[in-house]
Amino acid sequence: MDTSKKAKEEYSKIVDELTPKSKILKDVFRSFVSGGLICVFGQFLKEFFLNGGFEKEEAALLVNMVFIGIAALLTGIGLYSKLGKFCGGGTIVPITGFANSMVSSSIEAKAEGWILGIGAAMFSIAGPVIVYGITSSMVVGFIYYFVK
């Protein structure tokens, strides 16, 4: 097999041609509908808690709590991965997807024990989100401190 740079480029072209493409329109539509519906449910919950006399921030936290609880349950019984297969971005991006990444990593590591397994693996996917979320918040805070 010719493994020169030119042959590799040619190979990569052929691979692109012969690799089936995902049906983008269908995938995007499913994500749109499923993600939209999750958010509508979030809005419903938020109003429910606001009407129940909670402050805006309290209501937001309670909404998260419900979402994370549902995601944890669905992940545990193995349903979230099935939903994710169908909904794609629609179940990855909402807060439920964040919870799913933590719960799935944790359960997977159960065999390695509570400390070195679950404790260490819980943030294997969510960790970078926290690291770069907090870092960007510090950048925002730093700039805000000087320009406000």
Binding site: S81, K85, T91, G97, N100, S104, I125
Partner: peptide
């Protein structure tokens, strides 16, 4: 999957390839 890819219960999509 556990060693090379993602947790089994993660809601990601497997590409067609």
């Amino acid at each position: 999957e556990k060693q090379f890819r993602f947790p089994l219960a993660l809601g990601n999509q497997r590409p067609l390839s």
